[in-house]
Design a protein around this nucleic acid. Structure first.
Lengths: 196, 196
DNA sequence: TACTTACATGAATAACTATTCATGTTTTTC
DNA sequence: GAAAAACATGAATAGTTATTCATGTAAGTA
């Protein structure tokens, strides 16, 4: 396996980014196995061998994409939630931000899901990081009396699962769905529950 | 691609089942790409070529396993929910049954998730069938006044997502987790929500 | 028993594609 | 404006594995 050092010139930096974006598109669309390096470099408008100047293997680009998804998702949700007055409002803002992110970068979203099979450690790490941060937020909200008492970790995972499923159904499958309506409906259930 | 007719003798029937179980184990453990026909037939204690007497391709066994998962999950959850006095109780019973199923057949569970990439139609079909049935149950419960009014489809998908995420975290990742406790915590959130 | 159909075998076939590398070209350095 | 370093190229390598097939053996049938 090659070395794949960091690029040291402007040109190299740009090439690497080009290839990374092409990998996101090709792997996100066709899946890890079906995606070939040849296709990735074709989309990136560069030669086959150039790939290995910047990445040591197909697995490595994949890993890097999962990592990027982690960074971007956390930043996006954190930003959306930042000026929510309380946890109840934050839940709405966070869910909406997540669904809009899936809409904006569907390929990246699929890559994280495929990581379960391609790179289990990266996958697990992604959700553990996210879940831990989420649970901490819920605990803080409990302490402030903004939400009822309960197991913050179980709740965090349940809420993450909801968001993922809604992203599958109303963003990836159905690009005409009204996201705000979905968020409203889900948020009502999250806050009030089903019991009469 | 071969013909792969149905077996016509007792022996053939048994062989086919043997290979199907081996495929569940191998594909569920190693993933679709890494799983080789050679390994599947090795686990099934039969010759390589025998696989193609019963299945026309690797994709076809996979498809059949997804289909089987659909049958079994629906039957299991329906059974568990059958004698619940109302929807609130049914939600608990259904979630518990699902988590126990993941515990019993982790390979099958992973196969359904991988279907998103290997056989998108089968994957979508699985969740559409499940989601439609789930939403119908919720609508009936609304009509009986057992739960509050709301969009049954959004709720069904949200609840399915919760169950999946809890299955990932507390069954697949952590085999020492107390499932009943997780079900209790999740159920409280489902019924009462987070709002104080 | 003789014949037909069904099933079993595993070596050979037939791609497919990740990765390397020898040979250029461009950019930076001094 | 050379020399050095960085980057670019794509044909060749090298390993993997799904699928077929010619040759058997077992089970049903008359």
């Amino acid at each position: 396996m090659g070395r794949a050092t960091r690029p040291k010139t402007k040109r190299g930096l740009a090439r690497r980014a080009q290839i990374l974006r092409a990998a996101e598109e090709v792997i996100g669309t066709q899946g890890f196995s079906a995606a070939s390096i040849a296709e990735i470099t074709r989309v990136a408008d560069t030669a086959l061998g150039t790939f290995y100047i910047y990445f040591s293997s197909k697995e490595q680009v994949f890993r890097e994409l999962v990592h990027e998804m982690g960074q971007v998702t956390r930043a996006m949700v954190a930003g959306a939630v930042a000026d929510a007055p309380d946890r109840i409002a934050a839940e709405r803002a966070g869910l909406a931000a997540f669904l809009r992110f899936v809409q904006a970068r569907p390929a990246l979203y699929r890559i994280v899901e495929e990581a379960r099979f391609v790179d289990p450690d990266a996958h697990r790490n992604y959700f553990t990081l996210f879940g831990t941060a989420y649970a901490a937020q819920l605990r803080a909200a409990q302490d402030k009396g903004e939400i009822t008492e309960g197991d913050a970790e179980v709740r965090a995972w349940a809420l993450m699962g909801m968001a993922k499923a809604l992203g599958d159904r109303y963003v990836l499958w159905d690009d005409s769905a009204d996201i705000d309506r979905v968020v409203d409906e889900a948020h009502r259930m999250i806050t009030r529950g089903l019991a009469p």
